[in-house]
Amino acid sequence: MKPTLLILAAGMASRYGSMKQIDGFGPNGETIIDYSIYDAIKAGFGKISFIIREEFAESFKAIFEPKLNGRVETDYVFQNFDLTQYGIDKEIERAKPWGTAHAVLAARNQVNEPFCVINADDFYGYDAFEKMAKFLTSEVSDDTYSLIGYQIDKTLSEHGSVSRGVCKVDDNGNMVEINERTQVYFKEDGSVVYEEGGVEYPLSNDTRVSMNFWGFTPAVFKQSEPMFVEFAHKNENNPKAEFFIPLVADELIKSGTASFKVIPTANKWFGVTYKEDKPIVQKSISELVENGTYPANLWE
């Protein structure tokens, strides 16, 4: 059974929804999401599932179906605010959805095979998809999950500090814990630090970080649903609280329910944290086109 790629796109749907293509980075206006899908198909994924808000389904389909039709199966998962589906009988007012792990939970009735989760607007590189496809077809089980671990120095912006999920990895390559560091940056000498309470703490350049690229079986839906119910009750008066995938991972590790193998990649990760990052991403992609990693026109 071929694995499924689950793309967290509910946050970007507002930009798609106005039917303005989100930013083009490739030579023919390809978006970052196009490169992820292209790499996933090449690596052997059998289905692409987009997690979006339902009101943007038609505009999303108009963009992606013509490109992907005949190449790969597609599916659309809708993330919404209805809590009754989780047995919660109270209305909790929120402006934003409940976060990444809640988005994954929205797929529980549609995904029945091993799958991985990625962000829509991050560039991960083929190596990561190839390694994840291999893990999902040969190693994954209901108590053995994974995440792709990027080298921290290959994920930073030159234009300011960023937040990163810093992984502590044991001798067997499994994650022991993941800590959100909110101010990570390069110093002038090229070393990496994170700042907390005005104090700088060094991080070695090959420290592994999570860029939200996780591998699971459908068992994670049943494992995480009670956690979400508890989280929602606990945060009914905290409209900004978000139920993130690392929270679920941390709970599964601490309870002994599942381990998470950290799969290392030397790929460079690209993302647009600051507007100044955009030309850098465009330049990086054009170099990958020039060296033959990608065709000049992805979907021809």
Rank of each mutant, 00 (worst) to 15 (best):
T273K: 00
T207R: 09
F213W: 14
P218E: 02
A258L: 01
K222D: 15
V248R: 10
A232R: 13
L247G: 11
D206K: 15
Q223V: 01
T207A: 12
G256I: 11
A241L: 08
A241T: 08
A232T: 10
A241S: 12
E251Q: 11
V220L: 05
I245N: 11
P218F: 01
T207V: 07
P226Y: 11
V220T: 09
S204F: 04
F221C: 02
A232M: 07
A232P: 09
Q223Y: 14
F270P: 00
E242L: 12
W269Q: 04
K254A: 12
S255V: 07
E236H: 13
S255R: 14
P226F: 07
F216E: 03
K268V: 04
E200C: 05
P246L: 02
V220Q: 09
F221H: 06
M211S: 10
W269R: 06
Y274D: 00
P226C: 12
V229L: 08
S204G: 03
W214C: 02
P264S: 08
N267D: 06
F216W: 15
N205H: 09
S259F: 00
P218D: 01
V248K: 14
Y201R: 10
K234W: 03
T257C: 00
S255G: 06
T265C: 05
A219F: 01
S204A: 14
A266E: 13
V229C: 13
S255D: 07
Y274K: 00
F231I: 01
N235I: 11
N237T: 15
D206R: 15
R208M: 12
K234M: 11
T265V: 14
H233T: 06
P239K: 14
L252P: 06
E225T: 04
I263Q: 02
S210F: 05
M227W: 07
E230H: 10
F243G: 13
S255L: 04
